[in-house]
């Protein structure tokens, strides 16, 4: 029975690890998608570091367990047990040292990555875009020619007439040229500053390819900045349970060249 346990455990360990390593199976990719942001490679790097460190711990400890159980299976009746060389001491020391060093490195390097993404202000030239989430859609707003956003009035929100943000163009000059669209179009290689807010419950703004993830909390205006480095079309999905349509709540992020973006924005301004 012990041999069976050892073999099964080691097979499980190796197969599990192999899937992490090979992660591409006939069109099913079980790995992170391409990184399309300026900071993303640092997240990926941190993730790989953790993957190596903890992967090693995983494989070693499972195989050790499997091996010891295997050994323990065919010992004769009346066997006097042997104590692991040194007893508990090497266990405690190696745990404190190995894991200690691992977590020290991870938290120093990781905190720096985190701080550089989330604790730095956006660049001054960043393009401001306003994001409103609601059950079950995202809407995006560009300031328009005047560079100013109109004020928000919750009581004026009316999905039927397309006033998703609750703007008041009649009395509010700044709101008149605001461009409201259903997908996020941005220029490549230019810092973007999003202001996230929600009209009803908590939603989340998650773009896998940007390695960006932020809850959108009603009552808060949450800033989020990033720079996309690749053109393309990516999914923005909601990851915070927001009700029955949660699984369908998404929008698209379209990263265009600066010229394409300028043209697109001009077209939108003309259309609205």
């Amino acid at each position: 029975m012990g041999k069976a346990f050892g073999v099964v455990l080691i097979i499980i360990t190796l197969v599990s690890t192999a899937v992490f390593i090979f992660h591409d199976f006939h069109g099913i990719s079980l790995w992170l998608p391409v990184d399309a942001s300026a900071h993303g490679h640092r997240v990926d790097h941190q993730l790989m570091e953790t993957m190596y460190g903890s992967g090693l711990l995983f494989v070693l400890s499972q195989i050790m367990l499997g091996l010891f159980v295997w050994q323990a299976s065919d010992r004769p009746e009346g066997w006097k047990y042997k104590i692991f060389p040194g007893g508990a001491k090497p266990m405690v020391i190696s745990a404190i040292l190995l894991v200690g060093i691992e977590i020290l490195t991870l938290s120093f390097v990781g905190s720096k990555v985190w701080a550089d993404i989330y604790l730095t202000p956006a660049a001054p030239e960043a393009l401001p875009i306003d994001v409103q989430a609601g059950q079950f859609a995202f809407y995006f707003r560009y300031a328009g020619a005047d560079g100013k956003f109109g004020a928000l009035h919750a009581e004026k929100i009316d999905e039927g007439s397309g006033n998703f943000f609750g703007l008041d163009p009649r009395n509010d000059v700044a709101a008149r040229d605001d461009v409201v669209v259903a997908s996020l179009v941005i220029p490549v290689n230019r810092p973007i500053l999003l202001t996230l807010h929600s009209k009803d419950v908590i939603h989340s703004f998650y773009v896998r390819e940007l390695r960006i993830h932020q809850d959108i909390v009603p009552g808060l205006m949450i800033p989020l900045h990033f720079t996309a480095t690749q053109t393309g079309r990516f999914e923005i999905v909601c990851t915070q349970l927001c009700g029955l349509g949660h699984y369908q709540m998404k929008a698209y992020l379209e990263v265009k060249t600066q010229e394409e973006f300028d043209k697109w924005l001009k077209d939108q301004e003309a259309a609205q």
């Binding site: 992170l32 640092r42 997240v43 941190q46 993730l47 953790t50 993957m51 460190g53 903890s54 691992e102 977590i103 991870l106 938290s107 990781g110 905190s111 990555v113 985190w114 993404i117 989330y118 989340s204 998650y206 896998r208 390695r211 960006i212 993830h213 932020q214 990851t239 915070q240």
Partner: peptide
């Protein structure tokens, strides 16, 4: 180990 680090958790959260 992954989820304890905010920088990685941003990708893996939820």
């Amino acid at each position: 180990f992954f989820l304890a680090q905010p920088s990685i958790d941003t990708y893996l959260h939820a």
